Simulated assay, not measured.
Amino acid sequence: METLKLKSNAFDEGDWIPIRYTARGDNVSPELELVGITQNAKSILIMLDDASHPIFPNYNHWVIWNIPVQKVIPEGIPHGKYVDSLDGAIQGIAYGRNRYKGPKPPFKAIHTYVFTVYILNCKIDSAPNNKKRDLLNRIDGHVLQLATLSGKFQSGRC
């Protein structure tokens, strides 16, 4: 598998996620930059998970798929099942129902959130009512590359 790097101009790996990108702030998705996308790529899938959730490990906040292959995923992906600005990319069911839902841990708790990008060799034929587990089953055998970017957030942090 070729190496893929995932970066953001909003925060570095392991750093604090700015409040703008959280449900305590503007609740907009951060810009994501992909470095080293394979030439065989056909689509992109992104998930955001709360890796620190005490009851539901890797609690899914956002899932979006059939993003056209591009080096930069823009900030502020609009809400809705279909994203016209991304050639009809589909947002599924997560904590953010058909939309990005940023970090929002209980006050004083520090949680780690992980963006995972999958580079696929196909588009996924799947309805917007699908969830993370449905998509993970559908992409089995179609993942060309994978990269993650993690950040932390604490509600009430100054």
Rank of each mutant, 00 (worst) to 15 (best):
Y21F: 15
K101Q: 04
Y59M: 10
D87K: 15
Y100V: 10
Q91L: 09
P78A: 10
R133D: 15
Q145Y: 01
A23N: 11
M47I: 15
S8R: 02
E31K: 12
K152G: 08
S150R: 15
G151L: 05
T3G: 00
D26L: 13
D140T: 06
G88D: 08
Y95V: 10
R20N: 07
Q39P: 05
W65C: 06
V117D: 01
V28T: 14
M1H: 12
L144Y: 06
W62A: 02
Q145V: 00
N137D: 14
K152Q: 13
I90N: 04
I37P: 06
I73T: 04
A147L: 14
P18Y: 13
P128N: 11
I73D: 06
I19M: 08
G92Y: 01
I17W: 14
E13V: 05
R24G: 03
D15F: 02
L4I: 10
P105A: 05
C158V: 03
K7F: 14
E2D: 12
L6V: 12
K132T: 14
I93R: 09
V69E: 01
Y21N: 14
D12R: 02
D50R: 07
I119S: 01
K108N: 08
F56L: 10
H53A: 10
L86F: 04
F56Q: 07
G141C: 04
Y82I: 05
L86Q: 01
I67H: 09
D26R: 12
K132Q: 11
N121L: 03
A147N: 07
R157A: 15
P74E: 15
W16F: 03
L136N: 10
K123F: 05
D134M: 01
F107I: 11
Y100G: 05
F56S: 03
P54C: 09
D49A: 08
N129G: 01
F11P: 00
I110L: 08
V69G: 07
N58V: 00
L136C: 01
S155R: 11
P57K: 14
H142E: 13
G156N: 06
A89V: 10
H111S: 08
G96S: 00
P57F: 08
A127K: 13
Y21C: 09
G80Q: 01
I17S: 11
T112M: 02
I19W: 02
N60D: 09
Y113R: 10
R157F: 13
A23D: 07
P106T: 02
I93C: 02
I124W: 09
R99I: 03
A147F: 13
K5L: 12
P68C: 02
N66R: 04
A51S: 14
L48W: 05
M1Q: 11
L149N: 04
N9H: 00
K101E: 08
N121H: 04
D140V: 01
I90K: 03
G36C: 08
G156K: 06
S52C: 09
V63A: 02
N66G: 12
A127S: 15
V83Y: 03
I19Q: 14
K42G: 05
G92L: 02
G151E: 12
Q70G: 03
K7N: 12
N98V: 07
A127G: 03
L149R: 05
I93F: 07
V83D: 07
A109K: 13
L34Q: 06
T116D: 08
K123E: 13
N98A: 03
G76Q: 08
D49P: 00
H53G: 05
P106S: 09
N9E: 06
N66P: 05
